[in-house]
C-alpha cells in the first residue's frame, strides 16, 4: 500500500520558480483553501485541475494577487513575496490571461498589447506633452506576434475584427511580452472552438519553450493532458496530488479530483519531500477504496518534460 514519493520535488529546489506553502483562505464559514501547497518549476507547463468548490479559483486568485490568503506564504525565485493586488503580482513579473478575452475590442492590436504600459516618445514630446510613441509600440507588437507565430500582420486593426482565437492570441502575446517570471492562464480556451483552442495550446508551448513557465487552469482534460508537464490536482481546498500525464490516465486524474480515488490522505503536503523517506502511504479514503495511487512520477522532471513534449509533438503532427 505504499506509493512512490514525489521524486520531482526532490529534483532540486533551485528549479522551483514559484512556490506556496500552507495557504489558508476562509470566507466566513467556508474554507476555500485549507493548507494548500503549490509549486511551479522552471520551464514547465503546470496544469491545475479540480472540481467546482475545490478551491481552484481561490488558489489562482491568490497566485495572481487578486486574493490575499489568511495564512501561508509565497516564494518567488526563493524570495518571500506577498501580493496585495494583481498589480503587485504584475510588478513581480507574473502576468495573467483570463478566459473571457480581456481585451478592449474597439482598440487596435498594438494599443491592446500596451494598454496600461504605453510607450511615450523620447524627449519633451513624451515627457511634457505625454505623446505616445505609436510606431515603437506597433513595431514591438509586431515583433512579439511574429516571435510567437501569431499570424497577425497589421497592428492597427481593431481587435473586434479578429476571431476569438486571434483575440486570445493578443491577450497571450501581451502576457508573454511583459511576464518576467511566469504566465498564469485561467481557462484560456473556455470561450474558443476546437481549432482555435489548439492554436492557443500551441502558443502555451511556445511560451514555455521560450523559457517562461506557464500555469494553466482548465476544465478540459484532453487539453490538460495534451499540453501540461505536470498536473496539480486540487480537492477540498488542498493539493491532493501532483501527477504527470505520462504516468497517469485521464480517468485516474478525474478519480483523484472527485475523490473516488485517494490522492494522498495525510495532512502533510506532498512536496515536503525533504524527509527523504521516498515513500508516503496513501491511507484509505473513508472506506471507499484502498487503492494506492502514485503521487507523482519517479522520473526526473527534465526527462518527463522531454517525453511529454515528444508526445505532444506527435499529437500535433498527426
Amino acid at each position: 500500500m505504499s506509493v512512490t514519493a514525489d521524486e520531482t520535488t526532490k529534483a532540486g529546489r533551485e528549479d522551483i520558480v514559484f512556490e506556496a506553502r500552507g495557504l489558508v483562505k476562509r470566507y466566513g464559514h467556508v474554507t476555500a483553501l485549507d493548507g494548500c501547497d503549490f509549486e511551479l518549476r522552471a520551464g514547465e507547463v503546470l496544469a491545475i485541475i479540480g472540481d467546482n468548490g475545490a478551491g481552484k479559483s481561490t488558489l489562482i486568485k491568490a497566485l495572481s494577487g487578486a486574493v490575499t490568503p489568511d495564512l501561508g506564504g509565497f516564494l518567488l525565485d526563493g524570495h518571500p513575496v506577498r501580493f496585495h493586488s494583481p498589480a503587485d503580482a504584475r510588478a513581480h513579473g507574473i502576468e495573467t490571461v483570463y478566459q473571457d478575452l480581456a481585451v478592449a475590442p474597439a482598440l487596435d492590436i498594438a494599443s491592446n498589447m500596451f494598454l496600461g504600459r504605453e510607450i511615450r516618445r523620447r524627449g519633451p514630446l513624451g515627457s511634457v506633452l505625454r505623446m505616445l510613441d505609436k510606431p515603437a509600440m506597433k513595431r514591438q507588437a509586431a515583433q512579439q506576434m511574429s516571435e510567437l507565430k501569431i499570424g497577425l500582420r497589421s497592428m492597427t486593426n481593431p481587435v473586434e475584427e479578429l476571431s476569438g482565437g486571434q483575440r486570445q492570441g493578443v491577450a497571450v502575446a501581451r502576457a508573454a511580452a511583459f511576464a518576467r517570471k511566469l504566465v498564469i492562464m485561467d481557462e484560456p480556451t473556455a470561450a474558443l472552438g476546437v481549432r482555435e483552442s489548439g492554436q492557443v495550446l500551441d502558443l502555451i508551448r511556445r511560451i514555455r519553450d521560450r523559457g517562461l513557465p506557464v500555469i494553466l487552469i482548465s476544465h478540459n482534460m484532453p487539453q490538460v493532458f495534451e499540453v501540461s508537464d505536470r498536473i496539480h490536482i486540487q480537492r477540498l481546498g488542498r493539493r491532493v496530488a501532483l501527477i504527470t500525464p505520462k504516468e497517469h490516465t485521464m480517468a485516474e486524474a478525474v478519480a483523484i479530483m472527485t475523490g473516488a480515488m485517494p490522492g494522498r490522505a495525510e495532512k502533510e503536503p506532498v512536496a515536503t519531500a525533504d524527509d527523504g523517506a521516498g515513500t508516503i502511504t496513501a491511507a484509505p479514503a473513508s472506506g471507499v477504496s484502498t487503492v494506492g495511487v502514485p503521487v507523482a512520477s519517479a522520473m526526473p522532471t527534465r526527462q518527463v518534460r522531454k517525453s511529454t513534449r515528444s508526445l505532444t509533438d506527435t499529437i500535433g503532427k498527426s
Binding site: V103, L107, G116, L129
Partner: peptide, 23 residues
Amino acid sequence: QTAAGRHVYAVGDNPEAARRTGI
C-alpha cells in the same frame, strides 16, 4: 495621442479589461 486618452477608450470599451491591465 496620449496614454490617458487610450485609457478613456478602454474604460468605455471594456472596463474589466482596463482594470485588469492595471488602469
